[in-house]
């Protein structure tokens, strides 16, 4: 994660962090990323969904770790020392997203974003906000807030 190629495309207006899960690439808005850190063993939480790996200590705060692969409906991650945690801010909460590796920092404009094809299932439609085609790679843009809706608004 030390050397990210920064690409300057026309009229930069959005920065994204791209990461890999399995053979797929995803990206999220860099503004919601607080830091990226290595994997540490999490304390499992009882009665948690399978994609909640547990909680870790992030400088005194208790941070839940989400297995993004499982959350996106792919197979459960088997974390290794090479895995990384993207610490992301979502509304009022901070969560750690377990991914295989951070692959890129992208600077894009709205024109780079293609709509999500209609073939997608409900799950994909829920989180996918667009598709980026960069260097023959396909990168799926994820809306984190859509993936983990706010508890308060849910309860209300």
């Amino acid at each position: 994660m030390s050397s990210f190629a920064v690409k300057n495309l026309v009229q930069a207006d959005r920065k994204l962090i791209a990461f890999r899960i399995g053979d797929q690439e995803f990206c999220v808005n860099i503004m919601s990323v607080r830091e990226i850190r290595g994997w540490t063993q999490a304390t499992p939480l009882p009665h948690a969904p399978a994609y909640v790996m547990g909680v870790i200590n992030l400088r005194g705060a208790v941070l839940p770790i989400i297995d993004l692969s499982a959350r996106l409906g792919m197979k459960d991650a088997e974390p290794t020392a090479r895995h990384v945690i993207i610490v992301a801010q979502m509304k009022t909460k901070v969560v750690g997203l377990l991914v295989e590796a951070v692959s890129d920092i992208l600077t894009i404009t709205e024109e780079n974003i293609q709509p999500v094809p209609e073939v997608s299932s409900d799950l994909e439609r829920q989180y996918a906000r667009g598709i980026l085609a960069i260097d023959k790679r396909m990168i799926c843009m994820i809306e984190l807030d859509a993936l983990f809706p706010d508890q308060e608004s849910e309860a209300a």
Binding site: P46, V62, P64
Partner: peptide, 12 residues
């Protein structure tokens, strides 16, 4: 430390 701050209430 609160679990609710970044997560939610955990039964038990």
């Amino acid at each position: 430390k609160s679990l609710e701050a970044n997560y939610t209430h955990v039964p038990g």
